[in-house]
Design a protein around this nucleic acid. Structure first.
Length: 571
RNA sequence: CGGGGCGUAGCGCAGCCUGGUAGCGCACUAGACUGGGGGUCUAGUGGUCGCAAGUUCGAAUCUUGUCGCCCCGACCA
């Protein structure tokens, strides 16, 4: 491709509304342009990278035995009503009517549609297992789209659905997908972790998220320094270590703490460690008040609390409810004298003589003790893991915390959708059975963005060869010089014929502009053809990553490019 | 949905407080010079100041409404 004939609108200045580096660079490199909040045009250069990722996905999905199909973006409401999600999904589901006033939605995911296909066509165990996937545009009307392709409303997703005769067979399908995902993200050149994830409202026995490690990631993930345990923050278990403080209980003491509401303020005011304070949080679980207790330096994990309570809805109580329950303004809640359900983190079980809120304005209590001053209905793991916690799986390992970008998610669904949508088959005995399902998603655009988060420098993107829009760029420095152009075109033609995707920068621009653009758009290899070196028969070969420069005869440079690309694509 | 902020040329911004008919940098067009890390000079193109109503002799500027966008929070396979 000749640069002069191509369309790469690069931008020097940093766009005002871009926050993270991948968003900034994708805009600056002319890969994407915003159309509306969370909705983007994919320009030619951006599309090439997207297609590369899609291609890798297709190859690995096919290798794993999955079959590609394509389902419509538009989904009739009936299917969603049948699964019960028309009511449950909420505002994220974009709904609309056609001219006949029939209701539809833009598919945010396709369990309903794909299950409908399978229930119509699959009758016998002989037709299973089946794994169907598509690469397709999804729409989720996110409350707050942000970070460019990282969290858009309209986005490209690969979604796959497996159908099996029973749980054991579904486990095999899951395993296959898990391994396919490992290959996919490895081939994309991503530094990622597969972590255990909470199954959330969807239920099921197992779920893993594939997280690309990046400081800008929206999710916190936890991993062990000593073993391969890794989980996202929602799911990560805090090891149950109840260290019992051997101190003798001291008499309960009322202390005035005027205007001291937060743990920080209270502990500073009373000259005590935050870990000697017990934090009391009032929640509404299915609209009934519950008090959650945590050590002052710990954070509550709402998912864990919700699972422990077994409730449908859980929300932090609004101020008015807190005042009603405790009889005090927010900031002075405590367990002593309260008659609502009290759940405490297991760490609290070993504490003695701690500080709690006094359930009255400007009042806290010192030397509170379990059993004597109040009782707890249940001790459980309801806090977030903190760095340095002991590993729940191995001896000696400590937990580390990272930020990650969720690029893939694999899920055992069980029979949730097959039951509600009645997807069944006849087994060998002629008995009707419910199909076991799994679902597997990959954010395609998000994978490209995540890759850029991991691969960039002050000058721009540094694409790994497998997903770079082009493998090699030839910068012809003096396009008006016939010898230079002839050499550049010769290299271009030979590399292209050899299967190297090459961009020939034949623009009448100054060298500086060409170098800046080449760096910005992140082409892994650059051959510079200039009259200065060409008189000696040489060209310059520069690696985008690391910046290594070699002066080589033309044939050697081409051979090296071919070899580098071949090696990168061969895994 | 709560809190904060922003809409002025393709992009990034100033002007607004204290009303007087719009400016800077980049980009773009033409020419000349230049030619290995976003070069220089000259001459240009381009804006009903998000939209609507109001106040006023006069509104980018003040008021109200509205739409859009961004950030923080809550929300979220």
């Amino acid at each position: 491709m000749r640069y002069s004939q191509y369309f790469i609108p690069t931008v020097k200045e940093i766009p005002a509304d871009a926050e993270v580096i991948s968003h900034i660079l994708m805009l600056r490199a002319g890969m994407i342009r915003k159309v509306a909040a969370g909705i983007y045009n994919y320009l030619p250069l951006g599309l090439r990278s997207i297609r590369k990722v899609e291609q890798i996905i297709r190859e690995e999905m096919n290798r794993a035995g999955a079959l590609e199909l394509l389902m419509p973006v538009t989904t009739p409401a009936e299917l969603w009503q049948e699964s019960g999600r028309w009511e449950k999904y909420g505002k994220e589901l974009l709904r609309f009517r056609d001219r006949k006033e029939a209701e539809f939605c833009m598919g945010p995911t396709h369990e309903e549609t794909v299950t409908d296909i399978v229930r119509r066509e699959v009758r016998s165990y002989r037709q299973l297992p089946l794994n169907l996937y598509q690469v397709q545009t999804k729409f989720r009307d996110e409350i707050r789209p942000r970070f460019g392709l990282m969290r858009g409303r309209e986005f490209i997703m690969k979604d796959a659905y497996s159908f099996d005769v029973d749980g054991a067979a579904a486990d095999i399908s899951y395993e296959k997908m898990f391994n396919a995902y490992r290959r996919i993200f490895q081939r994309c050149g991503l530094n990622y972790r597969a972590v255990e994830a909470d199954t959330g409202s969807i239920g099921g026995s197992s779920s893993h998220e594939f997280m690309v490690l990046a400081d800008s990631g929206e999710d916190a993930i936890v991993s062990c320094s000593g073993c391969d345990y890794a989980a996202n923050m929602e799911k990560a278990e805090a090891k149950q270590v109840v260290v019992t403080d051997g101190a003798e209980p001291l008499p309960l003491e009322r202390v005035a703490t005027p205007e001291k509401r937060s743990i920080q303020e209270v502990s500073a005011f009373l000259d005590a460690a935050t870990s000697s304070v017990v934090k009391s949080l009032v929640f509404l679980a299915d609209d009934k008040p519950v008090l959650a207790l945590l050590r002052g330096d710990h954070e509550l994990n709402e998912i864990k609390l919700k699972n422990v309570l077994g409730c449908e809805t859980l929300e932090l109580a609004p101020d008015a409810a807190v005042e009603k329950v405790t009889g005090a303004p927010v900031g002075f809640a405590g367990p002593v004298g309260l008659s609502i359900r009290i759940v405490a983190d297991q760490t609290v079980a070993g504490m003695k003589n701690f500080i709690v809120g006094g359930n009255d304005r400007d009042l806290h209590l010192k030397n509170a003790n379990l059993g004597r001053d109040f009782s707890v209905e249940l001790f459980a793991d309801i806090r977030n893991v903190v760095p340095g916690d002991a590993c729940p799986r191995c001896n000696g390992g400590v937990m580390e915390i990272w930020r990650g970008i969720e690029v893939g998610h694999v899920f055992k669904l069980g029979t949730k959708y097959s039951e509600s949508l009645k997807a069944t088959y006849l087994d060998a005995a002629g008995k009707e059975q419910v199909i076991f399902m799994g679902c597997y998603g990959i954010g395609v655009g998000r994978s490209v963005a995540a890759c850029i988060e991991q691969n960039h420098d002050a000058d721009g993107i540094i694409f790994p060869i497998p997903i770079a829009p082009f493998h090699c760029i030839i910068s012809a420095l003096n396009p008006k010089d016939e010898a230079v152009m002839a050499a550049a075109e010769q290299i271009y033609n030979e590399l292209t014929a050899a299967g190297v995707e090459t961009l020939l920068d034949d623009r009448d621009e100054r060298p500086g502009s060409k170098f800046k653009d080449a760096d910005l758009i992140g082409i892994p290899l650059r051959i510079v053809v200039g009259n200065k070196n060409l008189v000696n028969g040489n060209v310059e070969l520069k690696q985008r990553r690391g910046g290594a420069v070699e002066l080589l005869p033309i044939a050697d440079a081409m051979a090296k490019v071919r070899q580098t690309v071949a090696e990168a694509l061969a895994q």
